[in-house]
Design a protein around this nucleic acid. Structure first.
Lengths: 198, 198
DNA sequence: GTCTATATCCAGATAGAC
DNA sequence: GTCTATCTGGATATAGAC
């Protein structure tokens, strides 16, 4: 009997995981288009045939990778929602989460933010209208409704609240910032909150 | 006698311009890697041979395009610097400029911001350390020195000041925002300034 | 300087044995 | 389900006449 991808699988990784993992590294290091399927074969230790048995084509790999990362983000945001009652706390926790991912798994952040998915995932929505980013905006909208934030346009408010943090993440990923973003968390949050607080 | 690219050329465009112009549209519409040289041949009306006579290779086209756009941005920022004396006015003018370019020439903004140049311009610096972005940060640094802005980390300050506006530009380019950014300029600026004002 | 025709290479994808 | 061997198309880039 062959392995059939169950949650109870032992940590011996199957083709799917190995391909996804290798691809994340290759895509973020070299870019999607400069990564060939032969590259993925070498890095994952799986054969061409095996890869094409599990994924429709190269785009299918990127697509599966994208889905899995969006899923992870969603879970993390749901947890923030249940853990914190106020919009203010939630937004702050979001920024902390994003900084944390950037520091511990930069490739994940890089892929989610920087890949301009439209170029190689034509079917997918732009990242900013994907579920996690919607959720981030919902926290802001709720804050406005509750009167914690200024009564301005939702998009302007959430851009102002998260914009500074995101900019720093880009700078960090590009190597402009050399130390951990965590050091700047407090200052960033102060600025962010001041920009929209009622 | 043949044309020799001078500033005094009549508006009959030469190979260089036609290729650059066509490439900007193609690169932003389809992406660099999905744009083939034959595509550029068709769109520019120049032949393969002619193109390769003027540019070393496909990357050379992207590189020339990048240079020309960065140059334009630089000139515009210099003008802002001479026109406005205070840091506050300069930063505000920068945001207005960025919004204006986004509305009138979205491809230009898209190419500058969104292209993740590292993928196809390996030699170039990341966009955020290019001259125009440095200049934008200098305006902020000066404001801190003069006491107009809070005495916080330069990078945090400039990320906070410009971050919201840039986020809205991304949203606009991705089609999430459907009306002109100019409508939001005042609100965006209020938030931006409040986030860092002394 | 500009063109057409073409060489070369290697990517993505498949076939079919095991 | 996994592998090796292979096909095929199209991309980049060049050759060489005009």
């Amino acid at each position: 009997m062959t392995k059939t991808r169950k949650k109870t699988d032992l940590p011996i990784l199957g083709v799917h995981e190995r391909v996804i993992n290798a691809s994340l590294l290759l895509f973020t290091k070299q870019g999607y288009f400069k990564t060939s399927v032969p590259d993925i074969v070498k890095a994952s230790g799986c054969s061409t045939g095996s890869i094409y048995h599990h994924f429709k084509d190269k785009e299918g790999i990127a697509s599966a990778l994208y889905e899995s990362l969006v899923m992870r983000m969603n879970l993390a945001l749901d947890e923030i929602e249940t853990q914190f009652p106020s919009s203010k706390q939630r937004c702050q926790a979001v920024i902390k989460l994003l900084f944390h991912i950037t520091e511990t798994e930069p490739e994940v952040m890089e892929f989610i933010l920087y890949a301009k998915h439209k170029e190689f995932l034509p079917g997918n929505n732009p990242i900013c209208s994907s579920r996690p980013f919607q959720k981030m905006r919902e926290f802001v909208t709720a804050g406005i409704a509750e009167g914690d934030l200024q009564p301005i346009d939702d998009l302007v408010a959430s851009a102002s609240l998260y914009g500074g943090a995101l900019r720093l993440i880009f700078l960090r990923l590009d190597g402009v910032i050399e130390h951990s973003l965590m050091d700047k968390l407090d200052d960033v949050w102060k600025c962010a909150w001041r920009s929209v607080a009622a």
